[in-house]
Structures are given as C-alpha cells and as structure tokens.
C-alpha cells in the first residue's frame, strides 16, 4: 500500500489543472515509476496525487502540418522507440530511451516525466536538447512555449509553476531534417542503471560530406542540469571532416561542463568521459551521415 493521500484521475488537461489549483500540495502522477517511489521513500508521503495518465490528449506522437514532430508527454519510452515517425525522423531519441531501465519500466515510464523530474542523469534530455526541442506548457492562464534548454533550473528543479503541465514536446523539421545523431550512455550495467554520463550529438554535413555544416552536442550528468555545449559546436562548424575534429570537439566541451564527484564516479573520471564520448559520438554521427552505419 502506498502512503499517499487521495488520487484523482483527471479527465482532461483543464480538469487536471483545476484539480492542481485546488490543492497546492498536490503532485502530478503519470507513469508512476518515479513519483510512486518517492511516495514510498517518504519524500512525497501523504500528498494527494493528480493522475494525468488517462488523458488521451497527452499521449501519442504526431506530425503537424509544417512537419514538426509533436511528442506528447505521457507517451511511454517503449511507444517512442517503436514509433515509425521517430524511427524515420529522429531515430536517436528512440535509441536513447531504449536504454532506460528495463523493458517493464519502459512500458510505463513516460518522456514527460523524464523531463519534468529534472534529473541531470535522465537519458531523453541530451537527445532532445540536440534536436532544439521546444516545450508547450499549459497552466490556468493558457499555454506558453519555452525551449527545452531553458527548462532546467537546477537539480530536480524545472521551469514549471504549480498548476502547470507539460502538454507537448516539439521538434521542428529544420532541426531534424538532414541531421544524423548518436547517443552514448555510459553506465556500469547495460540495463537497470542510471547514466554515469550521457552524450548526444546531432550532425549535418555539407556538400559531399566533406565539412561539418552544423553540429550539436549535449550531455547528461556533466553539470547539475542536462546541458548543451555551444562553444564545442561552434568550434567545429564549417571545419573539414577528419580525425583532428574529435579531439578538438572534446577539448572544447571540457571548457563548458561542470561535472561533480558523486558515488557513481569522480569528477576527474567524468571529465575523461566527456572528452572521450564527445569524439566517439561525433564520429558515430558522421559515419551515419555518410551512410557508413545504420542511420
């Protein structure tokens, strides 16, 4: 038996917002794989829950008229990985969330929860950051839009007021078309483990695949929040594709990150991983862009 107060199954987005506004201590519940554990640990004991998992408008993946991909937040990791649109347009996301937990967890845990928990170790943020994902947040006063990059405020803290819900994650066509990506999760086990470090890259090559037209780099666990590395991206933009890029990319990334020592790994080790994985992820993404690996 879980030690929460009451649970309210919201019937729609406005209904959920009304329920949240009526109880300033209420907590949003979706897949349950984080919130129920926090109830169990006592951190959310006694709190009332507003469940949004039955709201149809919050789940699914669709393509909007301008070919923007809209991922609704209550979509599970398994649904994302199996989705045809994701596989075709933003395969890196499906590959990254397929490394979270184990199969049973991926059948219940949702991408919205992965973002809203604000964990620096979450696996979906690095890839979504490299796709310039934009969030739609709906509250009692309507909806607002915000770049994912501006969403993370600190460990476990995101730009969400009480009564607001994440209602959509969008990736525009200009941000995925022509890009090839790669995500590396470094962890002690291949399943049921949290990333020691996560590294995502998206790359777009210039004519004949000889130059880097654009590159994007983002990390999990390289700072108190998931982060982009704009200087590293800028440092290789326009450069010729070649072995020296990888070293340079990693070195520049090291000037931007703020990793810490935790029981999982030391700061020194994390810095080594940041250097090493940046280059490896870039190399893998370039290979995919050249059609040398699976896209």
């Amino acid at each position: 038996m879980y030690d929460f107060g009451t649970i309210y199954e919201a019937k729609g987005i406005p209904d959920a917002i009304t329920a949240l506004m009526a109880d300033e201590n209420a907590v949003v519940l979706c897949g349950g794989s984080d919130v129920l554990l926090r109830v169990r640990e006592g951190r959310l004991a006694g709190r009332n829950l507003v469940s949004i998992r039955s709201i149809d408008d919050l789940s699914g993946i669709l393509q909007e008229n301008n070919e923007t991909i809209q991922i609704r937040p209550a979509t599970t990791f398994a649904q994302i990985t199996q989705n045809e649109l994701v596989q075709r347009c933003i395969p890196t996301l499906g590959e990254a969330v397929d490394q979270i937990g184990g199969p049973q967890l991926r059948n219940v845990a949702t991408v919205g929860g992965n973002l809203c928990n604000g964990a620096c170790s979450a696996d979906s943020p690095p890839v979504l950051l490299t796709l310039n994902a934009e969030l739609e947040i709906t509250g009692p006063n309507g909806a607002r839009r915000l770049l994912l990059e501006d969403f993370f405020e600190g460990p476990g803290k995101v730009n969400l007021e009480h009564g607001e819900l994440l209602t959509a994650i969008r990736v525009a066509k200009k941000d995925y078309e022509g890009y090839f990506g790669h995500y590396i999760k470094f962890s002690q086990r291949e399943a049921m483990d949290i990333a020691t470090l996560g590294c995502a890259v998206q790359v777009k090559l210039g004519a004949e695949g000889k130059t880097i037209e654009d590159a994007r780099l983002a990390f999990a666990v390289a700072a108190p929040v998931p982060m982009r590395c704009h200087a590293a991206e800028e440092s290789i933009r326009g450069q010729a594709v070649g072995e020296t890029l990888y070293d340079w990319f990693g070195r520049t990334a090291l000037t931007e990150v703020r990793p810490r020592t935790s029981w999982r790994a030391s700061e020194t080790f994390r810095r080594q991983l940041i250097y090493e994985l940046s280059g490896r992820a870039l190399k893998a993404a370039i290979q995919k862009a050249k059609g040398e690996g699976s896209a």
Partner: peptide, 27 residues
C-alpha cells in the same frame, strides 16, 4: 524489491509486461 528493479512481480497488462509493484491497481 518493490521499486521496479528486480522484475519478480512482472505480470502482463493487455499483453505488455509491467512491474506490478509500481503499478496502481486502479490503472
């Protein structure tokens, strides 16, 4: 484990494996 890590409580809901320890009966 009762925290969704060990899989001992796995059952199928609509044919999909879930950890029943972190799944509310209500659902």
């Amino acid at each position: 484990c009762e925290v969704g890590e060990c899989g001992a409580c796995t059952v199928l809901v609509d044919g999909k494996a879930v950890d029943s320890c972190i799944y509310l009966t209500l659902w």
